Simulated scan of single mutants.
Amino acid sequence: MPADTHHARITPTGNDGRCLDTAQMEKLEQSFLSWADAPLRSDTRRSRERILAIFLLIRNTGARLNEVLSLKPSDIDFKNHMVQLCKGGAKRSGPCREVEISEALSSELDKILNGPEKKSAPRGIFQVDPGHVRRKFYERAEAVGIPRELGTPDAIRRSRAVELLQNNMPIPVVQKILGHGTPNLVASYVEFSNDEMKQVARYFVDKETSRKTSARNAFFGKISRIRKGDIQSVIEILSVAGHTVVAVITNDSLSRLGLRPGAMIIAEVKAPWVTVYKSDKEPNSTAQNSFRGIVQRITRGKVASEVVVRVADGLELCSIITEESRQRIDIRENDEVWVGFNAFSVVLHVD
């Protein structure tokens, strides 16, 4: 797939000065948490906790301010860790969507909204003056040295979008979470149901919470075809972002995993198995999986170097090659390259 073929972009994935990076977002979150926990009077604490809840929802879901202010307590599913967001403000004249949240955030919101006694939160708990909310956002940003224009609800929403993209979440899933219209997505996107998109989003939310795994070199999609042989089977996967990935597994694994066409699956490949080719044309190789992209960054070492390539739709593939090979091929940042890997090196995971 050519490097210049991609879906409609939401926002640049780099920090262009209009967004907060993850460290700044976490710093701002700590500012809100400390501020909400400081007052001794219960009514003051309750008022601040409402602002904290609004911030946490925007920071973690990328919701619009008017979507959060129109929320009812029943829109938050604390058991299944979901929030229903609707466009159109209090009138809810626009479409609604369900957004995955982490178990930790669900628990925090439950504590804020329902209190230790677990009494039902009042229906209009989020009905706060938007101007008041913005002023408090400005104050919390400036308190930790962040320019007020980067502490607005819109800036935090943009920052969340960038954060998700930098975490390698497929663009169609980010668009779904943020409630963006997607009239020009490739046909592969419409083949994925809302439940399947939620499944991908849930993986990222859980990964982000644990911070123990990386989503690089991971393709999220559904099985489009299975070709079964005597000993091994060829699995073809259509990813959410429109990529086709080929994997070869044993028939025993096929049976054990219960794989079938249409099933959702995660395909991963380890960085040492990803090869980088510097070529204008797709290279002649035994790799069944080849993608064209742009070198985003290179981490150089004395023996080995890490090369991160962004292919179409923002997906990042990481390759680890010897530094000697990198110098010999003359791979540099912003180079157009091909990355490839063998079908036998793909590891499949079912949720």
Rank of each mutant, 00 (worst) to 15 (best):
V174P: 03
V173N: 07
K212N: 13
E139K: 15
M197T: 09
R148N: 03
K207Q: 11
G124S: 10
S210L: 13
R140N: 12
L150K: 10
P153F: 01
T152A: 03
K176E: 09
K136S: 04
E196W: 04
Q175Y: 00
A201W: 03
F204M: 06
Y189C: 00
Q127K: 13
L164K: 11
S193R: 06
G115W: 07
F204H: 14
G229K: 07
V234P: 02
I223E: 04
K212R: 15
A143T: 08
R158V: 10
I146W: 06
Q127E: 14
H132T: 15
N194L: 09
K212Q: 10
T213D: 15
F204Q: 07
V190I: 05
L185A: 03
I146L: 06
R148Y: 03
D230A: 13
K222D: 06
F137W: 06
S224G: 12
E142N: 10
G181P: 00
N217W: 02
L165I: 10
R225A: 10
L164F: 08
G151L: 13
G179R: 01
T209G: 08
E149G: 01
S120A: 15
D154P: 00
D154N: 03
K212Y: 03
I177P: 00
K198S: 09
G151R: 12
Q175T: 00
A218R: 05
F204P: 05
E208L: 09
F137K: 08
I112R: 11
L178Q: 10
L109F: 13
E208D: 15
T213M: 05
I226F: 12
